[in-house]
Every structure is written in C-alpha cells, then in structure tokens.
Design a protein around this nucleic acid. Structure first.
Lengths: 218, 218
DNA sequence: CTACTTTATGACTACGAGTCAATTTTTGAA
DNA sequence: TTCAAAAATTGACTCGTAGTCATAAAGTAG
C-alpha cells in the first residue's frame, strides 16, 4: 500500500515549507529577532505544529544551516568536475564560496549559528547536528580533492598533507569572509575601517596568497 | 576636592567586579545559558544595579569582549618590541594569539559574540562597540606593523600591500582557530573528524604556509 | 456510521530580560 | 549633630517569547 509513503512525503513537504518560512523571517528580521510565532504565522501553521516538526528553535535554525550547506556543496561539487588544474580549482572553489555567501547571507549566518552552538554546548547531538557536520566535512573534502588533483597534475607543491592543508584553507576562507562581511555592515564597522577593502579584492588576494604558497615553482 | 574622582574610581571598581562575575558565570554556564540574575548574584548586587552599569545583557558581553581584546593586544604589543625579523614576528604573533585563546576560551567566545552582533544588526552603536572595534583594529595593526618591518628587513616580499595582507592574515587566523576549537569539543565534532589534527599543528602549518607565501626567496 | 488513531491547534506555563517605585545610603549645609 | 535633598540600590514587577499540552479536527478503517 502507498499510504505510508504518501504521508511521509506530505510530512516532508510541510517540513520544507516551514524551513522556507524560517528563511523568510530570518532574512527579514535577522537571526536574533526572528520568533517562532512569526515563523509559524509565515508557514501558516500553529506554533504547536512547528514543534511537531522541530524539537526547538535551534533545530529550525540548524535545518536552515543544513539546507544552506547542502546547496553550497552542490555548487562546490560542480567545480570539481571542471577540467582545470588543481590550483585553478582551489581558486574556483574560493570564488564559488564567496559568491554563495554574498547571494545568501542568511545561510552564512546560519553556518555561524551552528558553529556558535557547537562552541557553547558540546552537549548537543541530534540528526541535524550530525548532518550539518557531515556537510561541513563534505565541503572540506572538495578542497582536499582539489589539492590532491593539483599535486597530481603538478600545479600544487606536495610538501603538505592535503587533508591538513584543506582544513587550513577552509577555516581561513571562512574567517576572511566573515571579517569582510563585518566591514560591509555600516560604513565604518569591522576592524578595517581606514582602508576601504572590498570583500572581493580581499578574497582575491587571499587566493593569490594561497596560490603563491602552493605554486610548484620550478 | 577628591570626592568626584573617588566616586568615579569606586564606580569603575564595581563595574570591573561585575565583569569579573560575568566572566565567571560565562565560563561555568556557557555564553547562551548565562543569565543576568546569575551574574548579579555572583557580583553580589541586585539585578537593578547591574542595569545601572550596563544598558543590556549584550553590553555586559561586549564589556567582556573589550576586556579580552585589550588583554590580547597587550600581549601582541610585547611581540612587536622583540628584536627579530618581521617574518619571525608574524609567527610569534600567531603563536601568541593561539596561546591566548587556549588559555581564555571564553574571551574567544566573546569575540565571536561581538561579531555575531555586528552581523545581525548593524544598528548597534555604543561606546563599547566602538572600543571593541578599535581593539580589533589595533590587533590587526600589529600584524601590519610586523609585515612592514619584514618588508623593511627583507624577510617578507613587498609584493602585497601590508594593510590588506594584515587583514587577510588576521581573518584567516581567526577562522582557523575557530574551526580547530570546534574540533576540540566532543570527540568527533567539527569538520575534521577523520584526521586527528591538533589545534597546534594546524596553526603551525598555517603559519608555515603564510611564511612560504611571504618569504623573500632569493 | 462509528470507534479509534493521527495530526493540528492556541491558550497556557516557565523563564529570563529589562523596568521602576520604594527604600537605603551618601552628601553637605546649617 | 541634624536633617533634607541627591544618589545609589533594591527586588518585585511587567513583558515577550520559547516550549507544552489538553482539546479539537481530520483522517482511517471496519
């Protein structure tokens, strides 16, 4: 009989719709000011229904994080299939990431939310946390893959362990983009008031710097 | 007459004591779970008194951030006075930063809190926000200074603008340390489960990578 | 149609941030 | 030393929001 399956799909659809609503509210109100009541209203369900699908507000936010990181991974995956050198791939991954967070700033906030949660109470474990973590691991694996390709095709020095280098590049990219984001908010926020660096130029130079360090000079 | 000054000092002392209490509570309960009531109790004042010194919970947290960044800057400043090459200074700054956040994880969380605030509502402005921002700028300026020294003493290539490079190194360092922190929480958290990278080794390699990119090879 | 199960609802509770009228302490003039 | 005005302190209170749960509605099947 198809009924359990149909019901399951129905449930999934409703869940996705709630996440849509959450994204709307978050984008409009900001992460801190969004309320469960608002999200419920936007999703056209009662608050109680929200809690049938998500155990807590944090879980809703993590669902947004999961969706965002899945979307990001889909774009990163595309880069890996391109027929270019490993070094060029690293550059392309950086640009793809940058473009993604510029296009979807609320996902970037969701990523930060996830990390904040993990930092605060490691006592968090759930299906969603696991999936967010796995997505982050996957993103990093694309970088590692590009590094391996680059070491193979001789475009990248093989002095480093790709896994460790991948972690470094991933972390550093997030840090730089985070900082650059701060600078966009308000005229003179962020630590770089005096110099008017553009987010793009900053990332551009970072990629260049990494390339310089990775370049097989010979 | 000394009275207004004495009163002022008295007030300052009380304020510092409240920040002490906030740090205690934050360290024990975590940033999210800390409550104003707890902080008040720890500081041995009524909640109302807390609000005479700080306009909101956010301001208490920003005060912690400001104190932390001031302490960090004091340590970074010491490095700048050492009689070493600019390149070596960059390494030493990185290690100093790492040591600091390991010793005071709650300050690191406070830094992240500040950045989260700035990301969420740019509509925040106050004496404290300004000071936190200035402290962040100061930290970055130490890096820039080291880069300039390095370019002077020929230990660092002068291909890049020191200000921009400084921003990159500062942002990247924060990102890497943040990620490495995640990994410490719980056995298999963070995006680097499979490989057991140590925070230290990660930063070590990052510094090496930067050095490789900066090294004046000739 | 009916009895039973599943899903949805929103009034309600719990809790913590922030307020403020009342109280205590400090100050300084007489 | 006294006393009244000013300043500092208090904690009971309000208010908003996360999360709950008894009740109602919708769905299912015999």
């Amino acid at each position: 009989m198809e009924k359990p399956s149909r019901k399951e799909r129905e449930r999934k659809r409703r869940r996705e719709y709630i996440i849509d609503a959450a994204e709307d509210v978050i984008s409009k109100e900001g992460f801190d000011n969004a309320t469960m009541d608002e999200i419920a209203q936007k999703a056209e369900v009662a608050k109680g229904t929200l809690y049938l699908h998500f155990k807590s507000k944090a879980m809703v936010y993590l669902a947004v994080c999961e969706r965002g990181s899945s979307k990001l991974n889909a774009e990163l995956a595309k880069v890996i299939t391109e027929n270019i050198t490993g070094l060029k791939m690293i550059e392309r991954l950086g640009h793809t990431y940058l473009k993604f967070v510029l296009a979807h700033p609320h996902y970037f906030q969701a990523f930060n939310y996830y990390e904040g949660l993990m930092n605060d109470q490691s006592t968090y474990s759930s299906e969603l946390v696991t999936r967010c973590r796995e997505n982050a691991q996957e993103a990093m694996r694309y970088i590692v893959r590009a590094l391996q390709i680059g070491m193979q095709d001789q475009s990248i020095v093989d002095r480093y362990k790709p896994e460790e280098l991948g972690a470094i590049i991933w972390g550093a990219s997030k840090g730089i983009i985070n900082m650059a984001f701060l600078n966009q908010k308000g005229v003179d926020h962020g630590p770089m008031k005096e110099a008017e660096f553009e987010l793009e130029s900053l990332i551009e130079n970072f990629i260049q710097l990494i390339s310089a360090a990775l370049l097989k000079s010979k």
